[in-house]
Nucleic acid binder design. Sequence first.
DNA 1: CGTAGACCTGAATA
DNA 2: TTATTCAGGTCTA
Length: 216
Amino acid sequence: TDTHLARTLEVARGLRVLAQEPTETLCSYICSAANSVDRISAAVGYLAQELGEPIGALDGATYFAFPSLERLATMRKEHFEESGLGFRGEHLRDVARQLIERPPDWERLRSATHDEAREALAGMRWVGLKIADCVCLFALGHDDAVPIDTHVWALAKRIFRSEIRTRSLTPATYRLIDRLFSERYGRWAGWAQEYLYHWRRQTMASAERGGQPSGP
DNA sequence: CGTAGACCTGAATA
DNA sequence: TTATTCAGGTCTA
């Protein structure tokens, strides 16, 4: 058994990996670059209200769907500012336009290998390995995808210290860690990542600077 | 191939 | 109170 994973299973019992719509998942993660989770959800909420179609009302409140690609493609500077997305707003608009110009065959990417799907997605502007992996794991059912964000990177540096030779998370190092995770967690690597991510966010978020906290 | 900086913005920290 | 850092990356020089 793996002690790291075992401990996180205790902390986040009941956590699940979702099956979301590919387009919405991709667009949402475009908004996540160097951003905080709170601001991301606030921005997505703003976009739905400003550019999305109303889908129902309850107790006097109206609910909106995530905007269509066509609407996202029309975003203007005011949307970038009011949403709080900043430079990510322009990325989002560009990705929407790319998706319209060259629509991915999601079903093909779903049945393709994780590596094939990831490389195809990472071929788009503003879509790197991390965001591509998020789409693979959360929307395309590739359970072996391991999105390596800043949190997982911090953990990986400790878990695989002797194997890592770069100071920053380069594409080559990203692929190396991906391989190491796969070897350790096999087909459940994606789930392992999800648990490790939440474990770190909940128990280590601030205790990091200044000293090596105990843990995985 | 690896390392810095840039890129919006505001809450948190110094 | 004002200044610097940082947040679920990616791109460029």
